Amino acid sequence: MSENLLDAFWQMPPIARTLTAVTAVLSLSVHLGLLSASWFIHHPYYLWKFPPQIWRLVTCYLITGGGLSMLFDSYFLYHYLSQMEIGNPRFPRKADVVWYLMFISGTILMINYLVDLPFHTFLRALILAMAYTVTQDQRGMKATFYFITIPAQLTPIAMILVNLLFPGGHIAMLLQLEGFVAAHLYDFLARIWPEFGGGRNVLATPAFVTRLVQTPRVLERGFGTAVRPEDAASGSSSGASRGPLPDSWRTRGRGQRLG
């Protein structure tokens, strides 16, 4: 049973499964009192200290609310992030997803700083931004939101308005609006302006992000060294297309010495 669950976990999209697992474990540890939330929340004060606590720029997106919010936030995080990571033509590479997360996260923090809102964790803003980005390409389709079927592109709006059903929901709306603005800015700069305004995509994935995300060619392992071919499809690195033998002979397998 445990092996089946582990196999299912490793078959999930790597970015989505990693961030969701880290979020669930960290949030559970904080809400159970095993870890102090003060080490993970965001505040400019900690960034100006020496040494600066720069990990807060990441961990402030990895803490959910308590109770059922932990379950729903983790679910929506995986749901929308996996849709971006698999089969989405706007994000054909993992580096594109990572760059999107970097831009959206930085924009949310900048908006929060400029407007001077009292938020210290931003996972719900990030989830709202991903929902907006995913559903913009699903116009004309239907989506189910809390047992209600609505047009897919209205899902982010429904996620914002549902906060009015809970006490203090107007504060949560402000947080999600930060994600809404950040996602709309990304959509404008990366899609609307290049396609309809005649401009260029100023948010193309930088080369350093690609180098950071791509699998290294040489992998040191405990049982040896694995070398990833530069072009496995063409076989240029493995020597499959070289040698004096005709192509038809190369498909016959390994030869056996007779005698």
Rank of each mutant, 00 (worst) to 15 (best):
Asp187Ala: 10
Thr121His: 04
Ala129Pro: 00
Val162Asn: 02
Ser74Arg: 14
Leu189Tyr: 10
Ala143Ile: 02
Leu5Ser: 10
Tyr45Ile: 13
His170Gly: 03
Arg191Glu: 14
Phe72Tyr: 15
Ile148Leu: 13
Ala24Glu: 03
Leu114Val: 15
Val227Pro: 01
Thr107Cys: 04
Thr215Lys: 11
Leu258Trp: 03
Val218Thr: 12
Tyr61Glu: 05
Leu123Met: 10
Ser69Arg: 15
Ser29Cys: 11
Leu161Arg: 07
Leu101Gln: 06
Lys142Ala: 12
Met110Gln: 15
Thr205Gly: 01
Gly197Pro: 02
Phe223Ala: 13
Gly259Cys: 09
Ile108Val: 14
Lys94Trp: 09
Val22Phe: 12
Leu203Asp: 02
Gln83Arg: 07
Ser82Tyr: 02
Lys142Gly: 00
Pro156Asp: 04
Asp7Arg: 11
Glu195Asp: 15
Gly179Thr: 13
Thr64Gly: 04
Gly67Ile: 08
Ala182His: 04
Phe50Ile: 10
Leu165Tyr: 08
Asp231Arg: 12
Phe91Cys: 10
Gln11Met: 09
Val98Ser: 01
Lys49Gly: 07
Arg221Asn: 02
Ser238Phe: 00
Pro52Phe: 07
Thr251Phe: 05
Leu189Asn: 03
Thr59His: 02
Asp73Leu: 04
Pro51Gly: 09
Lys142Val: 15
Gln136Ala: 03
Val115Gln: 14
Met173Thr: 13
Tyr46Leu: 09
Arg221Asp: 01
Val25Cys: 09
Thr133Asn: 05
Glu178Trp: 03
Gly179Lys: 11
Ile148Tyr: 10
Leu35Asn: 03
Arg124Ala: 05
Tyr75Met: 09
Gly255Ala: 11
